[in-house]
């Protein structure tokens, strides 16, 4: 995934906010469905809906918050990596995942932090590796084509 040419994402410091919000929405919506089903399943017969709503209201904002912390911190580190290294490659996000995992578990002590950081790094490495594999696999199908530039006179006033 080359993000340098990806204009659908906001540029760097601003992408932190949109990533944070998107992560929160992802966690809250996913958690809503997840805990809704779980609450309905764990309720006694006849009180499924109420149990679903109670569990959903209690848990899904928390999950959204957790996702948002992860996503926002990750995006912050990603932007910092881009700024420091002046490069955009998979190592940026792998390092960001490592750092995010480490920082979020920092209160558990160095051992816990290191294992959480390793998990974050592995997680992002898997995602980046898979996205490379997928883009290689589909590279033949949609090979980049030179866009045909329409012949246009420059707009007046320039």
């Amino acid at each position: 995934m080359t993000r340098a040419s990806d204009h659908s994402r906001d540029p760097c410091p601003y992408v932190i906010f949109s990533d944070l919000g998107a992560s929160f929405a992802m966690g809250a919506i996913g958690g809503g469905i997840w805990y809704g089903i779980k609450g309905a399943k764990n309720s006694p017969r006849g009180e499924g809906l109420q149990g679903a709503v109670t569990s959903l209201k209690a848990r899904s904002p928390v999950l959204g918050g957790n996702f948002a912390v992860w996503g926002g911190l990750f995006s912050t580190f990603d932007c910092a990596m881009k700024g420091i290294r002046q490069k955009e490659d998979p190592w940026n996000s792998i390092a960001s995942g490592f750092l995010t995992g480490g920082v979020l578990a920092a209160r558990g002590g160095p051992k816990v932090a290191l294992s959480s950081a390793a998990f974050g790094g592995i997680f992002l490495a898997v995602i980046e590796g898979l996205s490379i594999v997928v883009s290689r696999a589909f590279a033949d199908q949609n090979r980049p084509v030179m866009p045909q530039l329409p012949e246009v006179a420059p707009p007046a006033g320039h």
């Binding site: 906001d10 906010f17 949109s18 992802m26 996913g30 469905i33």
Partner: peptide, 15 residues
């Protein structure tokens, strides 16, 4: 869930 809410189209809410 994440790929549904992360739309890249022009109607995407942007900063």
């Amino acid at each position: 869930v994440g790929s549904v809410i992360r739309a890249d189209d022009e109607g995407r809410a942007k900063i």
